[in-house]
Each structure stands twice: as structure tokens, then as C-alpha cells.
């Protein structure tokens, strides 16, 4: 049910930004969801739809929502190597922990080239809003 928490964070943000601007219509919201959150896409879309419907009841109309899923990319601070999640194996238990707090990936993942835990999560970490177009 973490999907609901993420979806709620998105709608709280939309509401706040809309009220700040005194705007009641949002033409487009672009949401980016990082692979490390490993959320259930259907559940997330459903949650977002429900929460946006309840926003409408509170007078804020969101016309279109685009959800983009972003692949995780890592870059080693020590040797500069870049890789993605499929190149390293993680267990179900580890995926679960990373899903709550993506940064704990640094405990479970190591650079495939040099073995270091000191790397950067270049992409696909969390959830953010990339675009918000007001009507």
C-alpha cells in the first residue's frame, strides 16, 4: 500500500500548488516514478485516479495525468562504471527494503566492476513531478 502514500503525496502537492496560484484547473501533470520504488503500476494508477477524483470534489480539476517510469541507473564514485538494476541481482527481501527507502540500495548493491558501495543513483530513484501545467 506504499503506492497509496506516493499517490497521496502527489495529489497533496497538486492541491498545494494549485491553491498557491489560485488556479482550479490543471491541464497536465507529468509524474516520474523511479524503478527503485518498485511499485505496482496498476495499484499506483488506480490510487492516483481515486485521489484525483476526490480532488475534483474539492474544486480542483486535473485533466490529464502522464506517468513515466524511469529505469534505475547507477554510477560508481570510485571507478566511474555505470550500470543498471538488471546487471546486479537483488533478492525479493532487498527489493522490498529498497522500495520503501531507495537509498538503502547502497547496502545491498555494489559496483559490478570494483565492488564498491560508494556509487551515485543517477536515475530512477524516487517519485517526482516533472511538469505541472495550469489551465
Amino acid at each position: 500500500m506504499h503506492e497509496w502514500a506516493l499517490a497521496e503525496a502527489i495529489t497533496v502537492t497538486i492541491e498545494y500548488e494549485a491553491r498557491k496560484r489560485g488556479s482550479r484547473t490543471i491541464e497536465l501533470v507529468e509524474v516520474v516514478v523511479g524503478e527503485l520504488q518498485s511499485i505496482d503500476r496498476e495499484v499506483f494508477e488506480f490510487a492516483l485516479k481515486e485521489l484525483i477524483a476526490s480532488l475534483r470534489e474539492r474544486g480542483i480539476d486535473v485533466r490529464k495525468v502522464d506517468i513515466e517510469f524511469e529505469e534505475a541507473k547507477f554510477k560508481c564514485f570510485r571507478c566511474g562504471y555505470q550500470w543498471n538494476l538488471s546487471e546486479v541481482g537483488i533478492s525479493e527481501h532487498e527489493r522490498e527494503a529498497i522500495h520503501f527507502i531507495p537509498d538503502v540500495a547502497k547496502v545491498y548493491i555494489r559496483c559490478p566492476k570494483c565492488g564498491s558501495h560508494d556509487f551515485e543513483i543517477v536515475a530512477g530513484r524516487g517519485v517526482y513531478i516533472k511538469r505541472l501545467e495550469f489551465g
Binding site: 527494503a97 527507502i101 531507495p102
Partner: peptide
């Protein structure tokens, strides 16, 4: 609960991210 009893080798921005996530 998520890192187990392991040391978290985090840099400043990771720490900031992890706190905001929690």
C-alpha cells in the same frame, strides 16, 4: 528496519533523501 544491522555507506545527498523518504 530497511538497512538491517548493516552500515549505510551514504553521502550527504543520500542522507537528505533517506530522511525525506522516512
Amino acid at each position: 528496519f530497511y538497512s538491517g544491522n548493516k552500515t549505510l555507506p551514504l553521502r550527504g545527498t543520500d542522507i537528505d533523501n533517506a530522511i525525506k523518504e522516512v
